[in-house]
Lab assay of single mutants.
Amino acid sequence: MQRVNMIMAESPGLITICLLGYLLSAECTVFLDHENANKILNRPKRYNSGKLEEFVQGNLERECMEEKCSFEEAREVFENTERTTEFWKQYVDGDQCESNPCLNGGSCKDDINSYECWCPFGFEGKNCELDVTCNIKNGRCEQFCKNSADNKVVCSCTEGYRLAENQKSCEPAVPFPCGRVSVSQTSKLTRAETVFPDVDYVNSTEAETILDNITQSTQSFNDFTRVVGGEDAKPGQFPWQVVLNGKVDAFCGGSIVNEKWIVTAAHCVETGVKITVVAGEHNIEETEHTEQKRNVIRIIPHHNYNAAINKYNHDIALLELDEPLVLNSYVTPICIADKEYTNIFLKFGSGYVSGWGRVFHKGRSALVLQYLRVPLVDRATCLRSTKFTIYNNMFCAGFHEGGRDSCQGDSGGPHVTEVEGTSFLTGIISWGEECAMKGKYGIYTKVSRYVNWIKEKTKLT
């Protein structure tokens, strides 16, 4: 034993070699072989497995989906700052455009905790909710729209109204504003409101030439003092309507412009014939205590009207009353817009006519005020429907199939267009061939041609 100890002390290297040989010859039971080890760690190889990531292109799944990435790591994937920024906006807080917040056709661009709407022409605001041009839906104005110097929408209202708090709607500024039905039992019968379409306001006024200088022999019209197929109006439903009495009662109609003036057809009036105007009328054979009678003290036909040349060209006249009318729910003026808007309103496509005229061709006159909704007829169809001249200051309205029309005794009465609950004068009943005849239409004086003249002559002093 002493000898062994001496050998170990003198030859430590020998001992180490012996131990190493023993270990190498022993069977290893701690580690699995290569094949079995792979069965336990069965993990798919990654895209760049075996390579240094710093030297390969980034992978979106590896960089940002398996674990949260930084902007720089995302930049490695896209290799483009702009594309990385677009991805980053949604990656950080989701897609803010998912709810489609942009209105009126706006395009949404996502941002971090926010979004941006790219608005089409005519709109602005956070969600493109603000109209900035009158060309689109009248700028959301209830009545009139004008573009300011910086191309912003400025709404306005006709006389007797003021802008509401929203700067879009119009509200009454006087007790009985024009064009409004205020009798409670008839307010439910107000005709369907007309909503502004998209309009090209630059070209809204037709490029028409008034044929002022045409000389033409007097034409022989049949029954051209021209509501057939209409309905009984309720008291106060058309408070701007008046009836004219002269040699015979209810020979023509008219509309209240203001307390002192009536507008009617020029062919209705004769110099030297006494005319009485009755406002607030409903049943011409009954006294309903809503009527107001006034005498006409002055007749002003349009300066281009000449019955000797043509009885229905420039067929418009103004009547001055001896005493002002007292405005109330049964006696209310009709609204008159400017030339541009009167023309736009007419193009809405349908209007209402009213009167006490004959209820059928050569038949009896109506006792109760009649009204009828009539569609506008395109000019080409209008011209083809008659052998008589249709001037540019006239328009056609009615039904091709016949059966409904204005008729004798309705002449001078109103053709009105309702705009968001307020009625505007767009025409004056003038003439036609018979009444409600198939293929024939009622012919009306186009008020847009005469609004400046009306307003100039009827100013209240």
Rank of each mutant, 00 (worst) to 15 (best):
P301Q: 11
K126G: 05
I336G: 00
G246S: 12
E67M: 08
L41A: 15
L19R: 02
G122C: 00
T332R: 12
F55H: 15
A279D: 01
A317E: 00
D223M: 12
N5Q: 12
K188D: 06
E323I: 08
P177C: 03
T445V: 10
I256Y: 00
P197H: 12
S184A: 14
D249H: 09
L41Q: 15
K457T: 15
S148K: 09
A317T: 03
C268E: 00
A366W: 07
C18Q: 04
T81Y: 08
F31I: 15
L327W: 12
V199E: 12
D405T: 15
N127A: 04
C178I: 01
C382V: 02
I214P: 12
E231N: 14
G272C: 05
L367N: 13
C28W: 01
N48A: 14
N310C: 05
N104T: 00
F221V: 08
N147R: 12
Q216S: 14
E231Q: 10
L367Y: 11
Y115H: 04
D33E: 07
S114L: 05
L103V: 07
V174P: 01
K274W: 04
V359G: 13
L372P: 03
K247W: 07
F424Y: 10
F123M: 04
I316S: 01
A279M: 02
F221P: 15
V202F: 14
I17T: 04
V353Q: 04
T84W: 04
K152T: 13
I429M: 14
G421D: 05
Q219L: 07
N452F: 04
T276V: 08
F424V: 01
S430N: 11
I299M: 10
E171H: 06
T85K: 05
E323A: 12
V331G: 00
M8W: 13
Q2A: 13
N59Q: 13
S423E: 02
L318I: 04
G246Q: 05
N393Y: 06
S365F: 07
V359D: 11
C170R: 01
F345D: 01
E401M: 10
N310A: 11
P12D: 06
Y91A: 15
S148Y: 08
C69W: 03
N5A: 15
S49M: 11
E320S: 02
F238Y: 04
C396R: 02
G94C: 03
Y312A: 05
A9T: 12
F196Q: 08
M437P: 07
L369D: 03
D232C: 08
V257A: 03
G229K: 15
H361A: 06
C396E: 01
D150C: 04
E79H: 14
W88H: 15
N147M: 11
R180I: 04
T290F: 07
Y91P: 06
C134Q: 03
S411Q: 14
V243I: 14
S430T: 12
G125L: 00
F144H: 02
P175Y: 05
F144L: 04
S187N: 05
A317S: 03
I136P: 14
D223Q: 13
Y312D: 02
N452E: 07
N313T: 10
V199N: 13
P175S: 11
L32V: 12
T81N: 13
V269F: 05
N5Y: 08
G58M: 09
S411C: 07
A380L: 08
Q57K: 10
E129S: 02
T445Y: 04
K362N: 13
E73L: 07
N38G: 13
N151S: 09
F399R: 04
A37Y: 10
K168I: 11
S11Y: 07
D315E: 02
P44Q: 09
L19S: 02
D232K: 14
F424M: 01
V447W: 01
Q143S: 01
I336R: 01
T209S: 13
T445W: 02
S11V: 13
F121V: 05
C335R: 01
Q57E: 10
P414N: 14
C382D: 02
E82S: 09
Q241F: 15
A380H: 07
R294V: 02
K68D: 14
S220Y: 05
S406K: 11
R364I: 08
R373Q: 14
G106D: 00
N166S: 04
V377I: 12
E208A: 10
D249F: 05
G94V: 12
A380V: 09
Y352C: 07
T417K: 01
Y22D: 02
Y22M: 13
I300K: 03
H34A: 12
S423A: 10
A266R: 03
G246P: 05
K457S: 11
E433S: 15
T215P: 10
W240C: 00
I443S: 03
L23G: 02
K137E: 11
E116S: 04
K51S: 13
V447F: 01
A380S: 08
V4G: 12
V296N: 00
R404S: 15
T194M: 14
S114P: 03
V242F: 00
C145A: 03
G272E: 06
P44M: 10
F123R: 04
